[in-house]
Design a protein around this nucleic acid. Structure first.
Lengths: 207, 207
DNA sequence: TGCAAAGTTGCAGTGACTGCAAAACGATCC
DNA sequence: GGATCGTTTTGCAGTCACTGCAACTTTGCA
């Protein structure tokens, strides 16, 4: 009694998770992140508080809606590129693919999140704290592609740069969303790619 | 009855703050971060729990011992460099100066912190979340030196790169402290400087 | 239909953190 | 050497995020 891959159980779980994420973002945008309790969020999503914590390890995580499959998915993408593509390009493409996917599926949520993150920029930083294993996965993938030993700084730095690029892009996007978020991430990653040592001129990049 | 600059009150405050930081790091290293309560930390430092929270906004902050003056100090250093120095170099030097100072004053604390951070890497990330205003200060300074408009990505990215470099350096240092932390930060910042687009060869940098 | 596995819930408990008002303390002026 | 004023410390009561556990319900499968 099972569609290949998605049982009734799985569907319900996905729906509950989405409902919790939605409720968190909606309420936080409406009244401010710390004027919303987990109790209220759970009520809004029609589940118990305990269930909330079965889905998300923390309120923070629910706000960002960190997808636990995003890490593995990106790592796979990185490794799937042919060897002619540089590790940097592979990583960059994976990040962008993930972001555009995400925005296509949940643009409305991001528009609300923006409001919350504008008032509490620290939440965006904290969000990345919870994804330590994902970072590990990604930097391992980059390391393998680059043929570098575990101890080398490059893979970790590249992944950390990706987080930083995303963070900065969201921050800028929150100020002015007339440019697509994907564009801003691209721009940021390009700067990391060409190196920060040379100062950009006034007219390059986000004016 | 006052030495220029430092009254008895000021001295006591500095001592209490230091004692709380010390107690937090020592106990966390000893029994693991989340097997230590703020109550125990306060007891160890001989103050009330309420006083702990007068000094640090959170347990996390006490573990890292974020110096509230570090941001302004670095911003000042950045602006103090002559115009012949690039913004990148100015920033880089300021970061390194701060780190070497810190290590000279509290090397023992960092050796203990290392143990804690090895088991809970997320704490290092979270630590940077609390320093949003410092980041703002620094990126403003960089922006002014570079003559770029507020909205430009470069200053924010450079500062974010600095955080990332520091994080990665500490992580690597935690695995193997036979190299000075300052060296590792330098190496990481160099990679950011020259750009991540070109893949490093096997022998460059951390082997 | 009936059993096993997975998911949900309530409950009791811990511990971080806050606001408030009183007490202790240090600086200052006479 | 007080009287006084601003600062810091403290206790207390309260809120809320988060956890482990032990029922209970739902779904998957034979």
């Amino acid at each position: 009694m099972n569609q290949p891959g998605e049982s009734l159980r799985d569907r319900k779980k996905r729906r509950t998770r989405a409902a919790l994420e939605r409720a968190t973002v909606r309420l936080a945008a409406e009244r401010g992140y710390d004027h919303v309790t987990v109790e209220e969020i759970a009520a809004e999503a029609d589940v118990s508080v305990r269930t909330f914590f079965n889905y998300f390890a923390s309120k923070d995580e629910a706000l960002i809606g960190a997808d636990p499959e995003a890490g593995p998915r990106m790592a796979e993408r990185i490794l799937a590129f042919p060897d002619t593509v540089t590790p940097f390009e592979a990583y960059r493409s994976s990040v962008l693919a993930e972001i555009t996917d995400e925005l296509n599926n949940a643009r409305d949520l991001w528009l609300l999140r923006k409001d919350v993150l504008m008032q509490r920029p620290d939440l965006l930083v904290r969000a990345f704290a919870n994804s330590a294993e994902s970072e590990q996965l990604l930097s391992d993938a980059v390391g393998r592609r680059a043929g570098l030993p575990e101890s080398h700084a490059y893979p970790r730095l590249l992944v950390a740069a990706g987080s930083a690029a995303f963070r900065c892009a969201v921050t800028r996007w929150a100020r002015d969303d007339s440019v697509a978020l994907g564009e801003l991430v691209t721009e940021a990653l390009d700067l990391f790619g060409t190196g920060l040592a040379h100062t950009p001129r006034r007219h390059e990049g986000g004016s």
